[in-house]
């Protein structure tokens, strides 16, 4: 028992800072389990949407509503924000507090841009195109799936901002390193969900 504890802590000495304590290490594993549960949450919304997609009840359909340019703008902004967040994690590994904060600030700005584009898209559907959430099963499924993702991104913006404040106050420690790494995992996860929204909602809507 003592021998295995020793090897575990020996292993940790050669790991990045966020894994340097047993607590940090376990919390990161726990966060992966949380992300797996989030994946299941989104899968139920995807299943619902895909079943209801053809139930348009005379309201505008996917083909009527979806336009390539705004969707590509949202997609590119989110993909680039995932990249800048990844550069933040790289600066974290280099123990460069200023670099980490700078990339996280860029990530927050791109996140805000994404939310702005998405809000504009929702507004144009609901108000200009006469296709609010209540008008068909397809639109309910659409707004609930995309709204849940958008709510996650909004939460992520607040969370990254809170981590930026902590990093500015405390610098990179074992605790703030773990928090910065975890919020990065969350942000990349939202990008993964968006990739499937882009494919299963927008591209599929343009094809079928």
């Amino acid at each position: 028992m003592a021998a295995s504890t020793l090897t575990e802590s020996e292993k940790r000495k050669n790991m990045p800072l966020e894994y340097s304590t047993e607590e940090g290490d376990l919390r990161i594993v726990g966060f992966w389990i949380f992300l797996a549960a989030e994946l299941v949450l989104f899968s139920t919304l995807f299943a619902t949407y895909l079943v209801l997609q053809s139930h348009t009840a005379g309201a505008p359909t996917a083909k009527d509503l979806f336009k390539i340019n705004p969707v590509m703008a949202e997609t590119i902004v989110l993909l680039v924000s995932s990249f800048t967040c990844g550069l933040g994690t790289l600066e974290l590994r280099r123990h460069n507090t200023k670099g980490l904060i700078a990339w996280l600030v860029v990530t927050v700005i791109l996140g805000l841009a994404f939310i702005g584009l998405e809000a504009n898209e929702f507004y144009s559907y609901a108000v200009h195109e006469g296709a609010p959430l209540s008008s068909s099963a397809f639109l309910s499924g659409f707004f609930i799936l995309l709204g849940t993702h958008g709510a996650h991104v909004t939460l992520g913006i607040f969370w990254v901002t809170a981590i930026i404040i902590q990093l500015a106050q405390r610098g990179i420690t074992a605790v703030t390193a773990r928090k910065a790494f975890m919020v990065g995992l969350y942000w990349h996860f939202l990008d993964v969900v968006w990739i499937f929204i882009f494919t299963a909602v927008y591209l599929t809507g343009l094809v079928i």
């Binding site: 940790r12 990065g184 990349h188």
Partner: peptide, 12 residues
């Protein structure tokens, strides 16, 4: 995303 940004294979 999983392998290049999320470092899924890291940890003790």
């Amino acid at each position: 995303q999983l392998f290049m940004f999320m470092h899924v294979l890291e940890g003790t």
